[in-house]
């Protein structure tokens, strides 16, 4: 990894608590600690995979980084510039540099707007060119993501899930951003369509030096597309490493459990079954100490009381575990 350059995206000690309000006076009675001190950086042309199970806060991270949700604490830097405290108006020009692709190809496109206008919307908002220029640009984008420009006048419902995801990607590309948050972009797609969209995302990255924050629960997809991977559990990053070493030898017991749980499409592999017991606890009242200790097969008494910090164990590799 090139450590000397300024990362394109740098997130430090990010926190997002959602207050739980109750009663007539809407008093805050507690917090959902969705994101609890997350730090990472992404270089130009790099993909950071963010994995974890539902409720671990990975989608919230994606939204907070783009400031679609306001962070409770921490800082977000894009190309070295701190955007955490920027006002809405000041943030607007920066929106051209960062975009998002969502999971659900159905609800991410307004059903009442023609797809050509959906893709052209960012250009219109940022006053790029005149009407003719914009139409040309949209046609180019359509071609690039594998749609026919003559489909521009159709409505979203006339497309299949995979095609809609291509429309979403075209919309995200319209302003030529450097950074895209991809929030489970292939999870809702059929297997044979997933490969098409993953290939498209990777081709685009090579062409345009794109950086991705690739959020997914699918470890195989994350391994395929990412350069580095961060594993989240209940609002915290528990392991952060380059892809190869993480998948070769997971260090955190949770990463290990996740990998062991993924069913492999190869019946000749007879694996020893390492199963973690129990459910993911609620982020409203997470377990003390290390959040994973109630499910961890190696847990020791100190894991219950002392929260492990994310520390370097090897160059470019961090783990939050007392035992590793």
């Amino acid at each position: 990894m090139t450590m000397e350059q300024t990362p394109l995206v740098e997130v430090t000690a990010l926190r997002k608590f959602f207050p739980i309000k109750k009663g007539l006076l809407r008093r805050t009675i507690g917090n959902v600690r969705a994101v609890d001190g997350v730090s990472f950086s992404i270089n130009a042309g790099e993909t950071l995979g963010l994995v974890g199970e539902s409720g671990c806060g990975k989608s919230t991270v994606g939204r907070v980084v783009l400031r679609l949700i306001e962070p409770s604490a921490g800082s977000i830097k894009i190309k070295g510039a701190d955007i955490t405290g920027l006002k809405r108006q000041d943030l607007r020009p920066l929106r051209r540099q960062m975009q998002i692709v969502f999971q659900d190809p159905f609800s991410s496109l307004n059903p009442r707007i023609r797809v050509g206008d959906i893709v052209g919307e960012p250009l219109k908002v940022h006053n790029v060119g005149d009407k003719k220029d914009r139409a040309d640009r949209v046609a180019q984008l359509f071609q690039r993501v594998g749609l026919r420009p003559d489909q521009m006048n159709n409505y979203p419902h006339q497309f299949s899930g995979g095609q809609r995801q291509r429309v979403s990607i075209a919309r995200a590309l319209a302003l030529d951003p450097g950074f895209i948050v991809a929030d489970e972009p292939v999870s809702a797609l059929d297997v044979s369509i997933q490969a098409q969209v993953i290939n498209l995302l990777m081709d685009l990255q090579r062409e345009r030096q794109l950086s991705y924050l690739f959020i997914s629960h699918n470890l195989a997809v994350v391994e395929h597309i990412s350069h580095r991977v961060a594993v989240m559990y209940l609002g915290r990053i528990v392991e952060y490493a380059d892809k190869t070493s993480l998948f070769a030898k997971p260090l955190h017991p949770y990463t290990e459990a996740l990998l062991a749980a993924v069913p492999l499409p190869d019946p000749s592999l007879k694996r020893t079954k390492h199963r973690v017991e129990g459910d993911v606890p609620s982020p409203i009242n997470p377990p003390s100490g290390c959040h994973f200790h109630p499910r961890c097969p190696y847990a020791e008494p100190r894991c219950k009381v002392e929260a492990p910090v994310l520390r370097d164990v090897a160059p470019g590799r961090q783990v939050a575990c007392h035992l590793r």
Partner: peptide, 26 residues
């Protein structure tokens, strides 16, 4: 809460325009 409204925010569309284009017609 719809993702397409979030997408509109992500491209920097003003709240008024989001209300007029995305929310009201629906």
């Amino acid at each position: 809460e719809m993702p397409y409204v979030e997408a509109a925010k992500a491209i920097g569309m003003s709240e008024w325009r989001i209300a007029a284009i995305h929310v009201l017609p629906n």
